[in-house]
């Protein structure tokens, strides 16, 4: 069944997914700060309050812990809430509900309940929003068993993975890079899902595997284009899901290319790329490595306000180019 495909922005794709979910299932509703009349800090909810009413598109007070608690409770009692954080940084305020309640309740109650809550986190730097509004905290939540953590990189995946998240019986955390919201891409009409826990090969190559997440996928693809002209054939793996991680796809890719570069915006130390590196070093792909594994991650510093410094704290295309050239030419 081929659905017609149009160009939508990443934000529009998410909005469409939420609308479809609410049309299909009356248990689905939205919560978040300023998501009603204002349409959301990044205009992702837009005019959904007019279509579905204030009962299903609910503005919450400025209390992340309270809002998250209501969402988790609603999920436990059988509803399907989608809760938007204004900035992913504010997950820190709601950790009790996310980590101690949502993630554990199914286990602690012997499977008697599940927590089908979806939480959306506008994340990442690049908007000049400084240290408290620019972080990439996906690895924090990726460390918690009981949660599923995803980072869609395209409008297509943003819609399909959100619909998969709504259908999922467990809490799903979606990290959406703020700079992706305006990016356009092909999005099929109607309902479809993109599986959680499955990485996607965005570009096939033989010389080097770049495992990237979220906006870094696009930077890696741009770098791959430049490298192609230099005769370096890069495979780009879009990890898409942090937990549960699809290490098999990475293993297979590394067995083919013998070189691995991990690119992610979160702080490099103890980050997503650290986990990918370790998984490969432990796997049977180890014996296929012909160069050290290299990580490009965020700098070990709070994100600065100064736009030039802000750029310098996260991997950029020239950084990827240099790392890739060094790896393939045997300089590393």
């Amino acid at each position: 069944m081929d659905q017609p495909v149009r160009e939508l922005s990443y934000a529009q794709a998410i909005q469409e997914a939420m609308a479809i979910a609410m049309e299909q299932d009356e248990r689905v509703f939205l919560m978040g700060e300023d998501i009603g009349v204002y349409g959301g800090a990044f205009q992702v909810t837009g005019d959904l309050v007019e279509r579905f009413g204030a009962d299903r598109v609910i503005d919450t007070p400025i209390s992340e812990l309270g809002g998250a608690g209501v969402a988790v409770g609603a999920a436990v009692t059988g509803l399907r809430p989608i809760f938007e954080f204004q900035f992913s940084d504010f997950a820190t305020l709601a950790m009790e509900q996310i980590v101690n309640q949502a993630a554990k309740m199914r286990y602690m109650l012997g499977g008697a309940v599940s927590v089908p809550v979806v939480m959306r986190f506008p994340a990442g730097s690049g908007t000049g929003a400084a240290a408290q509004h620019s972080q990439s905290l996906e690895a924090w939540l990726g460390h918690v068993p009981g949660l599923k953590v995803i980072q869609p990189a395209t409008p297509h995946d943003a819609k399909g993975m959100l619909l998969a998240a709504v259908a999922d019986p467990d809490p799903v955390m979606i990290f959406e890079h703020k700079l992706l919201y305006k990016m356009k891409g092909p999005v099929p009409e109607g309902y479809y899902t993109v599986p959680i826990g499955k990485a996607e090969i965005r570009r096939e190559g033989r010389d080097l595997t770049i495992v990237a997440t979220s906006i870094m996928v696009h930077k890696a693809l741009e770098a791959a284009k430049t490298l192609e002209a230099e005769g370096i054939d890069v495979e780009v793996v879009d990890l898409r899901t942090i937990r549960p991680m699809d290490t098999q796809t990475v293993i297979d890719s590394v067995k083919k290319t013998s070189r691995l570069l991990c690119v992610y915006e979160g702080v490099k130390t103890l980050g997503v790329g650290a986990e990918v590196s370790a998984a490969i070093a432990e796997s049977d792909a180890f014996d296929f490595l012909d160069a050290p594994i290299v990580r490009l991650g965020g700098a070990e510093t709070p994100i600065p306000y100064n736009p030039e410094l802000e750029k310098a704290t996260v991997p950029q295309v020239p950084d990827i180019l240099k790392a890739a050239r060094d790896l393939v030419s045997g300089r590393r």
Binding site: S258, F286, D287, F288, L289, D290, A291
Partner: peptide, 17 residues
């Protein structure tokens, strides 16, 4: 001179295999 050889050749896992 012996130390250079004695510490074992430096090689990637793939080359080793």
């Amino acid at each position: 001179a012996t130390a250079a050889k004695g510490e074992g050749a430096r090689a990637t896992p793939l080359a080793r295999r």
